[in-house]
Structures are given as C-alpha cells and as structure tokens.
C-alpha cells in the first residue's frame, strides 16, 4: 500500500471533511492563507494591527466560484506532470464565506464547462503527483451541483 501525504504540510486537513488551514492573528482575527511556515515569524497583514502571534484556523469547506480557467498546455517546472501526453486540468478561484478568495485546481473529471462565476464548489483532497515518498495530495475544488443536473431540475 502506498502512503498518501499532503504535497505541502499544514495547509489543509484530510479525511472525510477536509479543510484549508489558514492562520488567524490572535490580536485582531485577520486570516491569512497560505499560513506561514511554523518556524517563520508571522506579522499580521492588517496594517492597523501589530500582532505577531497566530493560530491555525480551518476555513469553510464550501465557497462560490470567483472565476475559473484551465491549463491546456503543460505548465513549466516546478509543475510535476503526471500523464504523458499532458491532460488539461481546470483551475478555480473560490470566494469563501470568511472573505478570502483561494485558488485551486478543480477536481479530477471536471472542466470549465462544469463551472460558472458564482457557482458553489466544495473542497476535496486528491492526488497531485507521486514521488519517492508515495502519493502527494493537494486540495481541489469540486462543483457541488453539476450544471447539467441543475438544468434538469
């Protein structure tokens, strides 16, 4: 059995109800994503706050599409290609209820035709690539209701 670990540590949780993990300023509550590395200093991004301590804060799992696109050509390194020939994938910027817009790839099997500005998407965790340590996972945005289904209702 292969192991499965996040491609980047501390940015999202896994399991049945995965979430992005932001950092929250303990002085003013301002959120930041991605969170700073654990060993790094963190100065609050709010110019009216001089806070420098923060705590992890899980973000809402469901948001609305701010905009979306795809990659029809293989991006250059350090992108790690997983198929040969390259398979296009979709990307979405998603507005979360907390007031942040977060980019992500779109879940496997979905493309731009499944997306619209304002449409609801939810966070899932899928395999980004496989390296010597096994499968490396990443957060992705998955349409909550496929547009075709919506039209049928």
């Amino acid at each position: 059995m292969t192991t499965s670990t996040p491609a980047v540590a501390g940015w999202f949780t896994t399991g049945d109800d995965p979430r992005l993990v932001a950092s929250r300023c303990t002085s003013c509550g301002t959120l930041a994503f991605p969170p700073p590395p654990p060993e790094a200093a963190s100065f609050c991004r709010n110019p009216a706050c001089d806070g420098d301590a923060h705590e992890p804060a899980e973000l809402s799992r469901v948001g609305r599409v701010w905009s979306y696109t795809d990659a029809q050509y293989q991006p250059p390194p350090p992108y790690v290609p997983t198929t040969d020939p390259f398979q296009p994938f979709a990307l979405a910027a998603v507005e979360l209820p907390e007031g942040l817009v977060v980019l992500g790839q779109v879940a496997d099997g979905y493309g731009v035709a499944d997306l619209a500005v304002g449409a609801e998407v939810e966070l899932v965790v899928e395999t980004l690539y496989t390296d010597d340590d096994g499968e490396r996972t990443i957060w992705r945005w998955k349409p909550v209701v496929e547009l075709g289904e919506e039209a049928d209702q």
């Binding site: 990659a71 050509y73 990443i138």
Partner: peptide, 22 residues
C-alpha cells in the same frame, strides 16, 4: 503556484477575462 497548482501567468489573465464574460 507552479508546483502546487500549475498556475501560469496566462491562467491568471484568463481568470480576469472569464469574469468579464460572466
């Protein structure tokens, strides 16, 4: 942005373009 998302410069331009359309 390249490693985790494969997000190129044109992909950012495309986000703004798509918003104009929608």
């Amino acid at each position: 942005r390249f490693r985790l998302l494969g997000m190129t410069n044109p992909a950012y331009f495309a986000l703004y373009a798509r918003r104009r359309m929608d």
